Simulated assay, not measured.
Amino acid sequence: MTVGTRAVESERAEATLQGAKSIEGRGPWKLAWQRLRHDRIAIISGIVILLIIAVAIFAPVFVLITGHPPNEQYHQLGLTPDGLPRGPSSTFWLGTDDLGRDILVRIVYGARVSLGVGLVATLLTVAIGVLVGLAAGFLGGVVDTILARLVDVVLSVPFLLVAIALVSITSPGLTVTILVIGFFSWASVARIVRGQVLSIREREYIEAARSLGSGNLRIMFVDILPNVLAQVIVYTTLLIPVVIVVQATLSFLGLGLQPPTPDWGGMIAESGSYYRVAWWFTVFPGLALLITTLAFNLFGDGVRDAFDPRSQQLTQKDD
């Protein structure tokens, strides 16, 4: 073997070793992050979401800048002589509502309500759905039958009718809104998790865990749950905008938070009689709701494609 041949083989071996090192440690989570950070739409949507969260957290700063508390009524300064809302100006940047309150400040404080309900209700929904889905899919038998039928019953219940009934029994509020949304949303999460668990529980490493004496709880939460976590995260990111819209819908119907608490759905409902003479009263709260839900939806689509690039490839083939 010549010196040149040895040198070529050495270079090939070194290149192979470097390639192996570059591949080493690239698990599904790292691969998903690499795909996500190259998705411009998802990154921009994530930045918008972070800005909305920052605005909600620092809502009191807007009060200091404008000098207008969210529930302060400016009957002289904020209303025209005819008693109509005033349009955007240097005093009220986004105009005023029917009571002379600053719309900008109320939108900012409304972001706290929408994001708070969206995150808390989504976490409650996902927690219940994951627990039910794990139990149904792994335990099987009678447990699976009972829980599967329960899921079918919850999915078949008319949401708004039951929400109206609950509000008529209790008083509308933040807690009731979160509980109602959580109760009627967990079933879809449970169905997805159950389907994933049914396909995982028969795999070799689950059988190996059983043979080593692992209990059901350990197998469910240590061996199975991490393998369905990616699907749960994807569904969570797509569920948050749905919850925000549902909360705004309940407030629009008078079933959510009660005045004078700033709330996007309630603001849109209050503007119904003024859309011809005060367009800003309807447009700006509606834009806040649209931008927030659109950002979460686009980010959720990016997360889904990052964890499952095949879905994006199938979409491109169909196009």
Rank of each mutant, 00 (worst) to 15 (best):
G215H: 11
I53H: 02
Y275F: 14
L166G: 08
S45G: 03
A148S: 14
G272E: 15
Y205K: 06
D144C: 04
V126P: 00
Y274P: 02
Q316E: 14
E9A: 04
Q313T: 11
G25E: 08
R310L: 15
M220D: 13
I57H: 01
L119Q: 07
A15S: 14
G213I: 02
V120N: 05
L155I: 03
L212N: 15
F183K: 11
A32R: 02
P226E: 15
Q231A: 15
L84R: 12
H38N: 13
E72A: 06
T66L: 05
A127C: 08
G78F: 04
I52R: 00
I128Y: 08
V143I: 10
V234Y: 04
T145K: 14
G141H: 10
L131E: 13
R12E: 15
L77A: 13
G173R: 00
V8E: 15
Y109V: 01
P309M: 08
E72L: 01
H75G: 02
G265F: 02
G256W: 09
F92N: 02
M220I: 05
T5M: 14
Q313P: 00
V193A: 09
E9G: 02
A111E: 07
S89V: 02
F281K: 01
Q18W: 11
L17D: 15
R35G: 13
I164L: 15
G83S: 03
Q73S: 06
S22V: 09
Q196T: 01
I240N: 08
G256N: 08
I103K: 06
P226Y: 13
E11M: 04
I233R: 02
R276L: 03
F159P: 00
G300C: 11
I146S: 08
R149E: 03
I47A: 07
P60Y: 08
G173N: 03
I169D: 13
P262K: 00
Q247H: 11
I240L: 14
L294M: 12
R86Y: 07
S171A: 11
V108E: 04
E24K: 09
L287M: 12
G182L: 10
F184P: 00
V130I: 11
V167G: 06
V167I: 05
V167Q: 07
I181E: 10
Q73D: 12
L298Q: 07
L160H: 09
A136L: 02
I57L: 13
P172F: 05
R37D: 01
R310T: 12
T236R: 07
V234I: 12
I53R: 03
A288E: 06
N216F: 09
I128M: 09
I23P: 04
T2W: 15
S171R: 10
A190I: 00
S171M: 11
G67I: 03
Q258Y: 13
P226Q: 13
A13H: 05
T315L: 15
V48K: 00
L290F: 10
